[in-house]
């Protein structure tokens, strides 16, 4: 039962493996693409990764609480549809702010519906959020049936081109999230989150408000998905009711690579953010390694599977070794 040092370290810092992987991916990428470290290149990469980073944070919080959220991609699409239709290409900045607030509330509302079904009606999270995802993507199509609309270029320019002290905007967003997360981890809510995901029965016996905590994770996830939707809209500058769909599975992949197990009660948000960056870097590596066209999808998937399987392989080898 005695733990190895590696186990102890990964327990304390669940993102450790992801960080290692990031170092490898980043090194390989930088070798293939020497200008990766230039602020503009870094910025152009990070602004593409940011929507997934934000969505993965929400997903990770749900997963820590012992659930899963299949509807995050659809919530991103709804947000995108709201922004593209309500702000418009020539909208002014103050309405844009109001509409963004509305979009965030909509995301939280969608999360609240998920939370209601899972925490209070006790429905299976994976089925429930899969089902609600159709409600949300249907809503997105209703708001924006045909691709179009958009947000003013001043807004997209701010998102795309803001670099402060050599660091892209995305870094400050990430830093802010880490700061807030560090604070949450030091509150009772943070403890409850892990207790509920770890062993809900024990948490209930001890007096933790299990349902309220489960409910809250979905609201947070809806909020983060809406934030991701805003980032996505500022990246593309236009509306498309299906823009968020691929983010759902990527967010789960990112969370798992980032050391958040599907079984709940462990992990954090730093790992999933790193996981999202890794997924993006892998695409870069494939691009810059000049992988033959017909192999690109295969190699991309193979590297992801390898990244997911590595902790398992390490454990297997360790067990054999014993």
């Amino acid at each position: 039962m005695k733990q190895s040092r590696w186990q102890q370290a990964t327990y304390r810092h669940p993102y450790l493996f992801a960080l290692l992987l990031l170092a490898v991916a980043f090194t390989v990428n930088a070798l293939l693409q020497p200008n990766l470290l230039e602020p503009t290149t870094l910025n152009s990469n990070m602004r593409v990764f940011l929507p997934l980073i934000l969505v993965a944070v929400g997903q990770a919080i749900v997963m820590i609480g012992g659930g899963i959220d299949i509807s995050v991609g659809s919530i991103v699409s709804v947000t995108n549809a709201i922004l593209a239709t309500q702000i418009g290409l020539s909208g002014d900045l103050s309405t844009a702010g109001v509409i963004m607030g509305v979009a965030l509330l909509a995301g939280m509302g969608a999360g609240a519906l998920n939370g209601l079904c899972v925490a209070y009606l006790r429905l299976q999270p994976i089925i429930t959020t899969f089902a609600t995802s159709f409600i949300y993507s249907g809503l997105a199509l209703f708001i924006l049936p045909n691709p179009g609309g958009g947000v003013p270029s001043r807004l997209t320019a701010f998102y795309r081109e803001t670099i402060i002290l050599w660091l892209p905007l995305a870094f400050y967003v990430i830093a802010l999230i880490l700061l807030i997360w560090a604070a949450i981890r030091r509150t009772r809510y943070g403890r409850y989150l892990y207790a509920v995901g770890g062993k809900a029965d024990a948490a209930y016996e001890t007096g933790v408000p299990v349902r309220a905590v489960q409910f809250s994770t979905y609201v947070i996830s809806g909020f983060m998905a809406a934030l991701g939707g805003i980032a996505m809209t500022l990246l593309t500058g236009s509306g498309n009711a299906q823009v968020g769909d691929p983010l759902t599975l990527s967010s789960i992949t990112a969370a798992v690579i980032g050391g958040t197990p599907l079984s709940g009660g462990a992990g954090g948000v730093a790992g999933p953010m790193i996981g999202a960056i890794i997924l993006g870097l892998i695409r870069n590596i494939i691009s810059f390694a000049n992988v033959a066209t017909w192999w690109q999808t295969f190699v991309n998937a193979a590297i992801i599977v390898l990244a997911l399987a590595t902790p398992g392989i390490i454990n297997l080898v360790r067990r054999r070794n014993r």
Binding site: V28, F288, A289, N290, F298, I303, L306
Partner: peptide
């Protein structure tokens, strides 16, 4: 690394520059 190399041949024949 082998996977990438096997599928992609020698890495970057065209030097990438910004």
């Amino acid at each position: 690394a082998a996977l990438i190399a096997a599928c992609g041949g020698a890495p970057t024949t065209t030097a990438p520059t910004a």
